[in-house]
Amino acid sequence: MLKGKVYKHGANVDTDAIIPARYLNVSDPDELAKHCMEDTDADFVKKVKPGDIIMATTNFGCGSSREHAPLAIKAAGISCIIAKSFARIFFRNAINIGLPLLESNEAVANTKDGDTLEVDLSKGLIKNLTKGAEFKAKPYPGFMAEIIADGGLIEHTKKRISRRRA
């Protein structure tokens, strides 16, 4: 069960906003996390607590393919991202590295910045504890659920490779 405060954003949050390219000369997640969202909200990294949740409307994570973006968000302590829709490379990257993403129009429409949410990933349930409302996230297609269940793409691929060898 994930629980945290919501940081709410609008549409088209791009990967340059999530982690500016000037910090891409390193790939250590903890180093990257120090600069997460800093051009949009300079105090974000100071304010965010482990478990907190980022929420956005449409096309979250558009722009570059940099995996540094979900890595920075995850290492900053964010437990999951809820949006109406995600940019496709960001979606793959987040799933691959084990940062949960949920799509729910209703949750986004009925949640304010600063509300507290509780998320049950196994059931796809999003509870807004501030408002006392409950929403259902779009289920993952079977194929992606498998990658998530394996713990990300690397573990999933390891399994595939060992099956091939067997």
């Binding site: 979900p70 793959r92 990257n93 691959n96 194929f143 793409l153 691929t157 595939r160 490779i161």
Partner: peptide, 17 residues
């Protein structure tokens, strides 16, 4: 375009979902 982890998997297996 994809991310680094997808590329890592494909570098090993020669395929991708």
């Amino acid at each position: 375009g994809m991310g680094s982890t997808d590329i890592a998997a494909a570098m090993a297996t020669g395929d991708i979902w």
